[in-house]
Design a binder for these strands. Structure first.
Length: 279
DNA sequence: TTGTGTTTTATTGCCTCC
DNA sequence: GGAGGCAATAAAACACAA
């Protein structure tokens, strides 16, 4: 191999691996005869390698050549013609070999860069995935919690509805007794099925809602101008708990005797337009 | 020693730039 | 159109387990 020591790259090379002459003189001082013979054999191999290189058979570059090329590559990963020629001369290679080495080295560098980028992107992806999974779990937990709460609410509604009917009935009975104005108060559910004793006007005071359902009424049957009416069997209206209240019923009722059944139908949701229209 | 996988060197074909 | 770069690939060299 042709060795020169005039350029910067060669200086760097000499720093890493001392020149052969220097190595030989040191070796002769240090090593035994047997080991020296082995080293001589290796040198002979090196010489044969150089001959092989001359016959154009594909050979790997020597360690020193590769080190020098690597060092140059670190400085600049592309070759200008002058640098290529100089490197080829310094390392005893053909300019084409130097060019090919740089070409392949760039390809390896690019692959390494892609691997690094992949690692970075993968770690970012992993972080995001972790976050996504966590949020997905939170979402599932919230969804099931919502379902539970809905079921609970539904259950509570049905319970309070049936309970309020009982409460309504007992309160109604008590209120009827207190006011003593309603006939048929022996009816346990408090429903007065028929009342045709004259005109009556209803004044309704809902406690917590703007409308409610009325399934029964009680009208005047005595001498008093004011009679009491309890809209019952309606505990929750528009999501609010309805506190059953007595409603004062005055004479001059707007209903005809035929109207009540229609108006008080359970199936039909009354709008109470009749009431609000008069306000 | 050998089979196999990996690395390195070199080739080919295509593309871009001057 | 030639020089040079790049991707794909061939082929030699090398590493290593069985």
């Amino acid at each position: 191999m042709k060795q020169t020591s005039s350029s910067g790259s060669q200086d760097a090379l000499n720093f890493i691996v001392p020149p052969k002459e220097e190595m030989n003189s040191k070796r002769k001082q240090i090593y035994s005869r047997d080991f020296q013979a082995l080293l001589d054999d290796l040198e002979e191999e090196d010489r044969l390698e150089e001959v092989d290189q001359a016959t154009e058979k594909k050979r790997r570059l020597s360690v020193n050549q590769v080190k020098a090329l690597e060092k140059n590559f670190e400085l600049e990963n592309k070759l200008d013609p002058e640098r290529k020629l100089r490197l080829a001369e310094e390392l005893g290679l053909q300019t084409r070999q130097v060019a090919i080495w740089f070409q392949n080295r760039r390809a390896r560098w690019k692959t390494k860069q892609l691997e690094k980028e992949y690692v970075v992107l993968k770690s970012k992806y992993d972080v995001l995935k972790l976050d996504y999974d966590k949020r997905e779990q939170e979402k599932q937990a919230l969804a099931s919690e919502l379902t539970e709460l809905k079921a609970k609410l539904k259950e509570e509604n049905s319970e309070s509805s049936s309970q309020s009917v009982k409460e309504d009935s007992s309160k109604f009975s008590q209120q009827i007794k207190d006011h003593g104005s309603c006939e048929n108060d022996d009816d346990s559910n408090g429903i007065v099925k028929e009342e045709r004793s004259g005109n009556a006007q209803m004044l309704i005071s809902p406690s917590s809602s703007s409308s409610f359902q009325i399934n029964g009424y009680c009208s005047s049957s005595g001498s008093s101008n004011h009679h009491w009416f309890l809209p019952f069997e309606t505990s929750t209206i528009l999501g609010n708990k309805y506190q059953p209240q007595l409603v004062k019923v005055e004479e001059q009722c707007v209903f005809t005797p035929e109207e009540p059944y229609n108006f008080l139908s359970v199936d039909q949701a009354p709008t109470l337009q009749w009431y609000f229209a008069r306000q």
